[in-house]
């Protein structure tokens, strides 16, 4: 058990602590204050998305629609403000859209019992399509004067720490509290480890599964707002990027078993650090986009294989599996 417990997160953390000094020595410009801040800033959004994914994966699901949830509701905020609505109404609309989206995802998965992979694959495409076809005028929704001041969420700092990093830290604390200190969190672990056992213990499994996807969508929306405010626009084409792979990479590499019921916020942080360092290093080394994808693909494959070795699903649980 010792190796299994320490296993993945220990190994990954070791890789991170090995990789970091190598990059620091070998890559000029890596260990500069400016680059460190960029690195942290870049991974903050990834880390927040990782937290959303972690909640769902611990509950034995997966949410492929996260990138749509990141792009579309914040895009709606920018678009509505551009069209002359007030910021607060726009934000309310975005949160309402996120909640509705999470409810649909959750209802399909918990009540209609469609596997989460397929549900979110389709719903994400739907939401992204809806945004591009009906909500946004341009692929990149531009910043407008009505948003002035809001960019501090992405560009401001608190005691010298970039705001996205502060937000990531706050999100980590909130999600850790949720998972470890609340009944809801305990139920999510129980459902992820043994859904049938949780059900016959009297846990309202279905409403809790719905809630997981609502939380994921809301966290995704928050990550999107941070992203938009740090670049002063919402490039909605990000839906077509490989970002979702990075998020899954963070979660799986960090050691949150895809079989559910295992791992926590610490794993997300470790996964985020390694992926962030890796991506940043590759960018400094000027590795091409396709080259980066190749590396990410290999690492993700290794992580998934390791995961199914460390956290195998047995026959009984496999019947309940979504992934």
């Amino acid at each position: 058990m010792g190796i299994k417990n320490l296993g993945q997160q220990g190994i990954v953390f070791a890789v991170f602590t090995a990789l970091f000094p190598i990059f620091a020595i070998a890559l000029p410009g890596f260990l500069t204050t400016a680059n460190m801040l960029t690195l942290l800033q870049n991974v903050a959004v990834l880390g927040i998305l990782g937290l959303a994914m972690a909640i769902v994966v611990i509950g034995r699901g997966i949410d492929i629609s996260l990138i749509a949830a990141l792009a579309v509701p914040p895009g709606l905020v920018l678009q509505m403000v551009q069209d002359g609505h007030s910021l607060s109404i726009s934000l309310a609309a975005a949160f309402a859209l996120s909640i509705a989206f999470g409810l649909v995802n959750g209802w399909l998965i918990a009540y209609a019992e469609v596997p989460s992979l397929f549900t979110t694959l389709a719903s994400g495409l739907f939401l992204a399509g809806l945004g591009q076809a009906a909500l946004f005028k341009l692929d990149v929704v531009q910043w407008s004067p009505g948003l002035d001041g809001f960019e501090k969420l992405g560009q401001g700092n608190l005691l010298g720490i970039p705001m996205p990093v502060v937000m990531f830290a706050l999100a980590c604390i909130a999600v850790a509290f949720l998972l470890r200190q609340t009944r809801l969190g305990a139920y999510i672990y129980a459902i992820g480890d043994n859904p049938n056992g949780a059900r016959v213990t009297g846990i309202p499994t279905r409403p809790i599964i719905v809630l997981q996807y609502v939380m994921a969508a809301l966290i995704g929306c928050a990550a999107g707002l941070i992203m938009a405010s740090s670049v002063n626009s919402m490039p909605t084409r990000i839906f077509n990027s490989t970002l979702i792979y990075d998020v899954i990479l963070v979660v799986v590499l960090g050691g949150i078993g895809l079989s559910g019921g295992r791992g926590g916020v610490v794993n997300v942080i470790i996964g985020t650090l390694l992926i962030g360092t890796m991506l940043n290093g590759m960018t400094i080394m000027d590795v091409s986009y396709s080259g980066q994808n190749l590396v990410k693909g290999v690492v993700l494959l290794i992580a998934v294989i390791t995961d199914s070795f460390l956290n195998p699903r047995n026959e009984e649980t496999a019947q309940q599996g979504d992934i």
Binding site: Y187, Y189, D193, N196, G261
Partner: peptide, 19 residues
Amino acid sequence: NLGLILGEDIKSNITLANL
């Protein structure tokens, strides 16, 4: 399969039905 959350500790299992 139905009685225990095997991956969880004794404490969590005992309180699960009446958290």
